[in-house]
Amino acid sequence: MIAENLSTIKALAFDFGGTLDAPFLHWLDIYLMAYAETLGKPLDRDVFYESYVYGERQMESQQLVNKEHSLLETQLFKTHLQTAHLIERKVLDDTLYNREELPKHVAEWVTNYSAGYVRRNEPVLRKLSEKYTLLLVSNYYGNIRRIATDLHIADCFRSITDSTIEGVRKPDPKLWELAIQRAGFRPEEVMVIGDSTKNDILPALSLGCHTVQGYPENIKPEKIDLSRDYIFSIEELLPLLLG
C-alpha cells in the first residue's frame, strides 16, 4: 500500500485519457453523454459501441492525425467517423445536420469536457511535481505532446511517451517500461496512476511498479479491487502522497 512504500517512490507515471482528462470514465461513456446532450436523446450504449470502435480503428489505420493537430481537430476526426458510421447503420438519419453539424457540436462538447478536467487537475500535478518526477504515458495518435502543451501541463512532465510515436501500445508493458527507463528510474521507484486495469494497472504490476487505480465515483463497490490503492479523484493523491 502507498503508506508502506512512500520512501521508495521517486516518480509518478500518469495515463492521460480517462485519467487526467476525465473522472476515470471510459471515453465511450463520455461520447454517449455528448451525443445525448447534443441530440436531446440518448443513444443505446451497445448500439453506439460498434461505431465508437469503428472510429478508433479508422483513426489508427488511416493515420489521420499528425503531431501538430489540436485536441479539437483530433476530436473532429473521431466524431465525423462516428456519425458517418451511425448514419451508414441507419442509427441516425442521413441529414445535412447529422453529417456536418452534429460531429462539430459533439467534438466541441468533448473538447470542452476534456480541457475542463485537465484544468481541474493541473494544480494537483504541479503540487506533486514539487516532490516527484512526473511522466506521461498514453495510447495516443502521435500528438499527445501538442495536446499537453495546449492544455498547459506539458511542463509538469519530465517525459511524454506517445504510443503512436513509439510503435507500441498498451496493454503491452513495454510502453510503460520505455518511459520509465528513459527517465532513469527502476520500476520499483515508480507509481503508475491510471483508470484502466488492462492498460495501466496490470502492465505496471508486471514490471514491478506501484499502482493507484482511479475509479468513477458511481462505481459499484463490489467492482473495486480492495487489494490495491485506489482513488475517486486526482485530488486524492495529495494526502496519499504528500501527507
Rank of each mutant, 00 (worst) to 15 (best):
S114Q: 15
N143S: 05
D200C: 02
S206P: 00
H152S: 14
V190G: 03
N139S: 06
R89D: 10
K104E: 11
P123I: 11
I165F: 03
Y113E: 01
I219K: 01
K170H: 03
H210Y: 13
L102H: 09
Q181K: 15
I180H: 09
S138A: 15
I147N: 04
T161N: 12
Y141K: 10
A107H: 03
R186M: 14
Q181I: 15
I180V: 10
T197Y: 13
K220S: 09
M191S: 12
R158C: 09
I147L: 03
P123M: 05
V110W: 03
E122K: 14
A204R: 07
Y117F: 13
L125A: 06
W109Y: 15
I147Q: 04
L128C: 01
Q213C: 02
R120T: 13
F157C: 08
K198G: 00
D94L: 04
S129P: 02
D93Y: 08
K174Q: 15
R186A: 13
D94H: 07
P203S: 09
G167D: 13
L92Q: 08
H210R: 08
N199R: 14
R158H: 15
A183Q: 08
D155F: 04
R182T: 13
A204L: 04
V91F: 00
K90H: 14
A148I: 01
L175T: 14
D93H: 12
Y140Q: 09
V192G: 06
G142N: 07
R119D: 15
T197Q: 14
L134W: 11
K170S: 03
N143K: 02
K90F: 05
N199H: 14
N199K: 15
V91N: 07
T211V: 15
L175G: 11
K170E: 06
R186Q: 15
R145D: 12
T95N: 03
I87A: 06
E189V: 04
I87S: 07
E188D: 15
L125N: 11
E188C: 03
T111R: 06
L92A: 07
A179H: 10
V110R: 03
